Simulated assay, not measured.
Amino acid sequence: MHAAWVSFAATGDPGWPACREPDPTVRHFGTSPGLVHDPRRDLRTPWEGLR
């Protein structure tokens, strides 16, 4: 996590791709860190289309 913050502060790049549609992939920090595809979609989808 620290390295990601330092990289982002120094370069604007945390070291993984931005979360964008149609492939909402995010970085997960925890016991098994890595990239996760569309986590918690069940909580996000009811808000789709609202602006």
Results as ranks from 00 to 15, higher is better:
32 S>Y: 07
22 P>H: 04
40 R>C: 15
45 T>F: 15
25 T>Y: 08
11 T>G: 05
22 P>T: 02
2 H>V: 08
23 D>A: 15
3 A>C: 04
21 E>M: 07
50 L>I: 09
22 P>F: 09
13 D>V: 01
47 W>P: 00
49 G>H: 09
35 L>S: 03
22 P>W: 01
4 A>P: 07
2 H>Q: 14
4 A>K: 03
38 D>H: 13
35 L>K: 02
3 A>W: 00
8 F>A: 12
32 S>N: 07
32 S>P: 00
50 L>F: 07
3 A>D: 14
18 A>V: 03
22 P>V: 02
48 E>F: 05
36 V>S: 04
48 E>I: 09
36 V>E: 03
20 R>F: 03
40 R>G: 13
1 M>G: 00
25 T>A: 07
7 S>H: 09
19 C>D: 13
49 G>R: 04
6 V>K: 08
38 D>F: 13
34 G>K: 03
7 S>Y: 03
36 V>Y: 03
28 H>E: 14
30 G>V: 05
34 G>V: 01
5 W>Y: 00
24 P>W: 05
46 P>C: 04
5 W>D: 02
50 L>C: 06
8 F>M: 11
27 R>V: 02
5 W>I: 07
46 P>T: 04
22 P>L: 00
3 A>H: 12
8 F>Y: 12
16 W>M: 05
10 A>T: 06
9 A>E: 06
19 C>H: 10
10 A>K: 08
5 W>M: 00
2 H>W: 11
47 W>C: 11
47 W>N: 11
31 T>H: 12
50 L>G: 10
17 P>V: 02
8 F>C: 02
31 T>A: 14
23 D>W: 15
23 D>G: 13
12 G>I: 00
45 T>E: 15
32 S>L: 10
51 R>V: 14
13 D>Y: 10
27 R>A: 11
19 C>T: 14
24 P>Y: 07
36 V>N: 01
10 A>Y: 06
33 P>H: 10
10 A>H: 09
15 G>W: 01
20 R>Y: 02
44 R>I: 12
1 M>N: 00
35 L>T: 00
5 W>S: 03
26 V>E: 00
2 H>S: 14
47 W>Y: 13
33 P>A: 05
21 E>T: 01
43 L>P: 11
28 H>K: 13
5 W>G: 02
16 W>H: 08
26 V>M: 01
48 E>D: 11
38 D>Y: 12
47 W>H: 13
46 P>W: 08
45 T>A: 15
6 V>H: 07
11 T>R: 05
40 R>D: 15
3 A>K: 11
42 D>E: 15
44 R>K: 12
22 P>Y: 09
42 D>K: 09
16 W>Y: 06
15 G>V: 04
29 F>L: 15
47 W>L: 15
7 S>R: 06
6 V>I: 05
25 T>N: 08
36 V>H: 04
46 P>M: 06
19 C>G: 06
46 P>Q: 06
19 C>S: 13
27 R>H: 13
47 W>D: 13
11 T>A: 01
44 R>H: 12
14 P>K: 05
34 G>P: 02
10 A>C: 08
37 H>V: 10
6 V>G: 09
42 D>V: 13
13 D>I: 06
51 R>W: 14
18 A>D: 09
13 D>A: 08
51 R>I: 12
34 G>H: 06
10 A>Q: 05
35 L>V: 01
35 L>M: 09
13 D>E: 11
